[in-house]
């Protein structure tokens, strides 16, 4: 009991979030009843949340460093397009090639593309010191450009039937794509909490200068991080392609806003240094349940856009009230040292 209390105290924000989640779930049960709490709805929810959950994780990792990745959706789309090229028959003759080989090539191609996209972001940010927001703004336009050039703006149809299965297959009634997301989240949680690089990501987000002065290869850390983000986008891309059986530029544009919403809702500090995977899970749960409920209640897409935007503002407002995102500038110094350092966090995040 004492341990539980201690945990609740240490994870105050997550506890509140969990409470709100329970409330929402109960409320939806009361209002929607079985149309919400049915196996089929649960399955469709867990399928839908998969690709989005991965993108939110990618955004969350960037935000832990005080950065942001505006290119998550465009790099996922580009990875999807490159992967889909293999599945349309443009590369292999689908009649004569083993579908497993085709799919294997597609998976590798998508993952490598995602990784390369992330690597480009990481190198630009770490080696040329472009602020993350600008670097990823540039790459998102660039990735979209590459995708448009490859597809000519059209949608690439997937012709390998077996590949659709990825989006549909279940293990013990749990969709495989959902399991993929869960595994990714668990791995991320372990890496952040129990590895050197994970710890350093928090420290970097808190104060990248101090981390440099601590003797850490901060540039390698950032390149590694954005590469991982790219890889996660690559995985999301595969799920996207299998679910929609196609790939096209412009897919999933709304995800960018939602990813930022989830990450802020999850209690991440946009200035970096704070955020837990647990919070991310709870925020994803909340967003997905609400989204499904709105669908059941026949809300249009714009109603959702409105609600997500309003929620983002409301969460930030509440955070402000709870004084969580304030960098403490305490007056405990008795001498104003001449500063050689320009901090740009206020405007760059």
């Amino acid at each position: 009991m004492e341990n539980i209390l201690k945990w609740l105290k240490a994870n105050g924000y997550e506890s509140v979030l969990a409470g709100v989640n329970i409330l929402v779930l109960l409320l939806l049960g009361l209002i929607l009843g079985d149309s919400f709490y049915s196996i089929s709805n649960m399955q469709s929810m867990s399928t839908q949340v998969a690709e989005f959950g991965l993108l939110a994780l990618a955004m969350g990792l960037a935000m832990l460093t005080g950065g942001i990745d505006l290119s998550i959706v465009s790099s996922a789309v580009l990875a999807g397009i490159v992967g889909a090229e293999f599945l349309t028959g443009n590369v292999f003759d689908l009649e004569s090639t083993d579908p497993t080989l085709v799919m294997g090539a597609a998976v590798v191609a998508a993952l490598v593309t995602g990784l390369l996209c992330g690597l480009l972001n990481g190198v630009l940010i770490a080696k040329t010191s472009i602020p993350p927001i600008l670097a990823t703004l540039g790459t998102s336009i660039f990735f979209t450009g590459v995708g448009t050039v490859i597809t000519g703006g059209a949608s690439l149809p997937v012709r390998v039937k077996a590949f659709f299965q990825l989006g549909v297959v279940t293990v013990a009634r749990v969709p495989v794509v959902f399991i993929i997301m869960v595994v990714a989240l668990i791995l991320a949680a372990i890496a952040l909490k129990r590895t050197r690089s994970g710890r350093r990501i928090y420290l970097y987000g808190e104060n990248s200068i101090a981390l440099r002065f601590t003797g850490v290869r901060h540039e390698r850390l950032i390149i590694l991080l954005y590469a991982v983000i790219g890889l996660i986008c690559g995985i999301a891309a595969l799920i996207m392609v299998s679910r929609t059986a196609s790939a096209r530029v412009g897919y999933g544009e709304a995800y960018l806003l939602q990813a930022i919403l989830v990450v802020v809702l999850a209690g991440f500090n946009p200035f970096g240094g704070r955020g837990k995977v647990l919070g991310l899970v709870l925020a994803l749960l909340m967003l997905q349940t609400l989204s499904s409920a709105f669908t059941i209640m026949r809300y249009g897409p714009y109603m959702k856009v409105f609600i997500w935007g309003a929620m983002l503002l409301a969460v930030m407002f509440l955070n402000r009230l709870m004084n969580r995102n304030k960098r403490s500038t305490r007056g405990d110094e008795t001498n104003d040292a001449g500063q050689t350092v320009v901090t740009v966090e206020g405007s760059s995040a």
């Binding site: 942001i68 927001i133 806003l257 930022i260 919403l261 802020v264 946009p270 200035f271 249009g300 714009y302 109603m303 959702k304 856009v305 409105f306 609600i307 997500w308 935007g309 309003a310 983002l312 503002l313 930030m316 407002f317 955070n319 402000r320 995102n325 304030k326 206020g346 405007s347 995040a349």
Partner: peptide, 23 residues
């Protein structure tokens, strides 16, 4: 008054403005 990254604040208002008008 929120004293948060302006990007995120305006991302929120962007959705609210568009969504509200469409609805």
């Amino acid at each position: 008054f929120l004293k948060l990254p302006t990007l995120i604040v305006t991302l929120g208002t962007m959705s609210v403005y568009r969504g509200f008008m469409a609805v």
